[in-house]
Design a protein around this nucleic acid. Structure first.
Lengths: 331, 331
DNA sequence: CTGTTAGCGCATTCAC
DNA sequence: GTGAATGCGCTAACAG
């Protein structure tokens, strides 16, 4: 392995001069600079980032930690990577879920400290653990759970998104609107926020919402959503609209509706949440709430880079506005 | 920051004893062990992985490098993470694409050397660069491109998958089967391998394939696929079957067919490739080639861990068998 | 079973 | 504009 001192010796300078030059510090003569760069190229020298990290205490790397790699975070991650690059930061993805016993491990402080900052979609983790992480490394939370007030946090305007979706269904004539993936729990989180929007829209329209139309879904997978939708249809409840708490859940609902021969939007209108790329390509297209990932990502990056820069300020809880995208699954 | 020597001092032992205990080396008395662990807990000590990495030359971390985070690699990544954990290795995701000018940067040797091994889905990178990477770090390639013979490589049996898909369409009565996303190029890659399977199936059935039904797609996105499918339908070619080179491309095709009022499978039958989760939930379900990600992942992990262990052997090119999953988009 | 020695490769500090 | 000394926090190798 060729090290910096190999380069220094070959170029006839000291190690420090090489270091200065490679780090772009502007205090080397052009001649020395060129000679050093030539030797670097000739020897194929690559800086050892581990050594630099140990010495400087910085890795120029940020981690995005998500429950699983194959959910909707991919799209956000792509945006984050581009934005972070502008600040000279590199993004890597880590996951927490999978083997449950290792969840703690993936979030071990030791590993997190390898990063200059962490973007975390917190799910199973406790508030105490979050506090510990936050004390150890610049941290910005993404997600809907109730979060400690003293940690930066970016989340969607779930209540408004759900309200828009439900309002739209009502405006298009739906009166029996199932809330698929809804929850009865009151702990502020995605499910209860979206339920709140569903209730508000009913109230604003002078309608009463029927709690029997709140249909929990075990884990927001297509499979569980389809099972839940089947059960709802079998229960004999009249349903002429579905607000699905995510687009994935909406896919499950559409599958169940198709099985029963119910037409969308003629018999049942459907709205989802996430505005996945595929929504536009389905037949009919899926009306959905666009989560404004662009703004979500840029806000998260701004907060995190501020923290990394050591700017001391009160924690910020940003709420990202959303909008409805109308397609053929509603009239 | 609390370091190992803080722990050692507090526990009244040497730094090495702490190191031994924390690394589970079985040569410490139970009393000492417990005392050290108590102090670790009390002080909230966390090992510095950067320092360990510098000293030991190992990071116990493997990178999966993909063009973009939001393609189909999410599912593979989840499987890889679980398998690697069994070998004490941690998986992180890196991406190459996005800002084109930084593609080389993301693949910089400096960064790759931070990992004990690399799983790479190579796309834009040249063979010379691959050789350079392979010389610097244990490397296993995932993907369809023609790869240097001396680097481990895992890929799907694309020819057979395409043959199965086309054979199935023919068996179900299709005679004018468009190859959507096909390519005329002869350089072995995904597109040409799948075209080969399409041709073979025609030959085996005693049919001749019509080159006018080979319909390139600009970038395998739904959008471009839909555009290409529209153009094909507009061209006046009679089409009663579509073999889409990926499920995403199939989504675009289905969208275009829907626009034209063509029914699936009555007017046109469709088969995709990838067996995405959503295929089962569409109406009708999408017949697709299952890519056996389970075996792909376990094979890649096996090859990589062998390389990391330093086992010297000739490079291996593994071809993963695939199978057809029949659903409603074919009769 | 425990400890000493000797760095890993680089960057901070400060002198010249 | 350049470089010598020093040590970041840890562990391999060896001693005892």
């Amino acid at each position: 392995m060729v090290t910096m001192s190999d380069v220094a010796r070959e170029a006839g300078v000291s190690v420090m001069t090489v270091s200065h030059i490679l780090n772009g510090r502007p205090r080397a003569s052009e001649a020395t600079r060129q000679r050093v760069l030539d030797v670097v190229a000739e020897l194929g020298y690559e800086i050892n980032l581990t050594a630099r990290g140990l010495r400087s205490g910085r890795t120029n790397t940020v981690a995005l930690i998500v429950p699983s790699f194959h959910d909707y975070f991919g799209e956000i991650a792509d945006r984050l990577a581009v934005l972070l690059e502008a600040s000279g930061l590199h993004l890597v993805l880590e996951r927490t879920a999978g083997t449950a016993e290792h969840e703690r491990d993936a979030l071990s402080l030791a590993r997190l400290k390898m990063y200059d900052g962490v973007l975390l979609s917190a799910h199973g983790i406790s508030r105490e653990e979050l506090e510990t992480v936050s004390a150890a490394v610049p941290l910005v939370l993404l997600g809907e759970r109730r979060m400690p007030d003293d940690i930066d946090h970016v989340r969607l305007d779930n209540v408004e998104g759900a309200r828009l979706a439900t309002e739209h269904l009502i405006a298009r004539g739906a009166r029996r609107i199932a809330l698929l993936g809804g929850a009865f729990e009151t702990e502020p989180g995605m499910a209860s926020s979206r339920r709140e929007g569903w209730e508000i829209a009913h109230g604003e329209a002078g309608l009463t919402h029927d709690p029997r139309l709140i249909t929990p879904v075990e884990d927001y997978s297509m499979d569980c959503a389809r099972t839940a939708m089947r059960a709802l249809l079998d229960s004999g409840q009249h349903v002429d609209g579905v607000f699905a708490i995510t687009d994935v859940v909406a896919q499950g609902a559409l599958s169940a509706l198709g099985e029963r021969g119910l037409r969308v939007p003629d018999d049942v209108q459907v709205v989802g949440f996430d505005d996945l790329e595929i929504d536009e390509f389905m037949t009919p297209g899926l009306t959905s709430v666009n989560p404004n990932h662009e703004l979500l990502a840029s806000t998260a990056v701004r907060l995190l880079t501020e923290r990394i820069a050591g700017r001391s300020r009160a924690a910020v809880h940003e709420v990202i506005p959303v909008r409805l995208v109308e397609r053929g699954s509603t009239r």
